[in-house]
């Protein structure tokens, strides 16, 4: 059972961190993601931003799971991680095809649809 050295002992102490600390970190990460989505026009940077938001959301879920406490939040995060891995695999495939067309991955180059 001693898979983890801290298995028997709790890492988190009552007097130390509170849920809001983790939620603030998540909010900051989401703000960085929003900034990236607005400013960046490189398709890969946009995926970076989306991944940052997804990670922050997972942090929110785990913090809630620890606070409540219930294991369902952890299961939720497992599903969420698996799903975003699948999503990124398809998305990167699309971006590589785009690179074959334009030799660039800047989405401002993609203007075919504006008529």
């Amino acid at each position: 059972m001693a898979l983890w050295p801290w298995h028997a002992e709790r890492i988190l102490r009552k007097e130390m961190n509170q849920p809001t600390d983790f939620l603030y970190i998540a909010v900051i990460l989401i703000s960085i993601g929003i900034y990236g989505l607005v400013v960046k026009r490189n398709a890969l940077r946009l995926i970076f931003s989306i991944e940052l938001i997804a990670n922050a959301v997972n942090l929110v879920l785990i913090a809630f799971s620890r606070m409540l406490p219930s294991p369902q939040g952890q299961v939720f995060v497992l599903f969420s991680i698996a799903i975003s891995a699948a999503e990124v695999a398809v998305g990167l495939g699309i971006i590589i095809i785009a690179y074959r067309f334009y030799k660039d991955i800047d989405i401002t180059e993609y203007k075919n649809l504006k008529n």
Binding site: I50, I83, I94
Partner: peptide, 22 residues
């Protein structure tokens, strides 16, 4: 290329929407 561009836009907004839903 038009189909690809359609898909990139769809993918970026779709991935963002699923993060928002989570």
């Amino acid at each position: 290329p038009i189909s690809n561009e359609a898909s990139i836009k769809y993918f970026l907004f779709g991935a963002l929407s699923s993060a928002i839903i989570v």
